[in-house]
């Protein structure tokens, strides 16, 4: 049960303001999700792949991490720390070795991608936005989530967005009713979710479909067939973002579009501070319909 926000910029000149705009949207959704908050930001692409990791003891865990990893890989590694999170950039071919190295050191991998960085923590959305300096982040698009936990624990790992493949992230408002069965099916396919969270099951489902050859639209359509319960999903990829609601569609969802951006919010008030919102096209996504924007 939650609040979702998403912002996809159509124009380059707004990129430096992405984090600022997204922060206002996220904080407005605090009432819908006071337990934890998270954001996925699609920022500048560098020379390698970005891996966002989290640690409850960042001071010790991140101390010398880049040097140690670089030594292990025999390749250049850069690291940017941000509170409990750190973003490591490694060459694409070193991803697998990096994952094993990081997990062996007890670090939690939040997400991997060429453009995507993920930051999530427990606490009020305002505090989470502040501790990560969300307002200063730039990028092409981003998705945020405020969580009111239903049946899984209020932990960092239980917070959204969930990323189960490179540059993919998923946030969810609602409650799935067949996620335990789906969890077993996905585990057999090698896409086992790491948490008890129903949203992670949906993320794994979409990743598995894409891995099997589906395009994103097909994978999102598949959720309508294979996932039961109530959901509004907002999905981010390297180049775009998509939205789908269940056929009953009683969880709130509203979208706004101008020449400058496409925005998603659980409630209209998330848009109140966006530039030009008074003249934007504002509508509610139809049930059982996939929407997708790509640059």
């Amino acid at each position: 049960m939650c609040g979702i926000v998403g912002l996809f910029l159509k124009k380059e000149d707004l990129r430096p303001r992405l984090g600022d705009m997204l922060a206002d949207m996220l904080i407005t959704m605090s009432d819908r999700g006071p337990d934890s908050a998270g954001i996925a930001i699609y920022g500048d692409q560098g020379d390698g792949h970005k891996i966002t990791v989290q640690s409850d003891t960042p001071d010790t865990a991140f101390d010398g991490l880049d040097t140690a990893l670089g030594d292990r890989l025999g390749a250049p590694v850069t690291m940017k720390t941000n509170d409990t999170h750190a973003v490591l950039t490694v060459p694409a071919e070193a991803l697998e070795a990096t994952g094993a190295f990081l997990e062996a050191r007890g670090l939690r991998i939040m997400g991997v991608g060429e453009a995507m960085e993920i930051y999530k923590e427990t606490g009020l959305p305002r505090d989470v936005a502040t501790r990560f300096g969300l307002r200063a982040m730039g990028g092409s698009h981003g998705i945020g989530h405020t969580r009111m936990a239903t049946e899984s624990a209020v932990t960092t790992l239980g917070a959204h967005p969930f990323s189960t493949d490179a540059d993919q992230c998923l946030v969810h408002n609602g409650s799935l009713s067949n996620h335990n069965t789906m969890r077993r099916v996905l585990a057999q396919k090698g896409f086992a979710p790491k948490t008890e969270n129903d949203t992670e099951v949906a993320a794994c489902y979409i990743s598995s479909r894409i891995a099997e050859g589906a395009n994103l639209g097909e994978a999102l359509s598949g959720t309508l067939e294979d996932l039961d319960g109530f959901f509004t999903f907002v999905m981010g990829t390297k180049t775009g973002f998509g939205v789908v609601r269940d056929p009953i569609a009683c969880k709130p969802a509203v979208m706004a579009e101008t020449d400058d951006y496409v925005a998603f919010g659980s409630e209209y008030r998330a848009f109140a501070g966006l530039p030009g919102i008074d003249s934007a096209r504002v509508w509610e996504p139809e049930p059982a319909t996939v929407y997708f924007w790509e640059r």
Partner: peptide
Amino acid sequence: FEILNTRGSH
């Protein structure tokens, strides 16, 4: 009465 600056409030 006129209510201003509602900003989507409930």
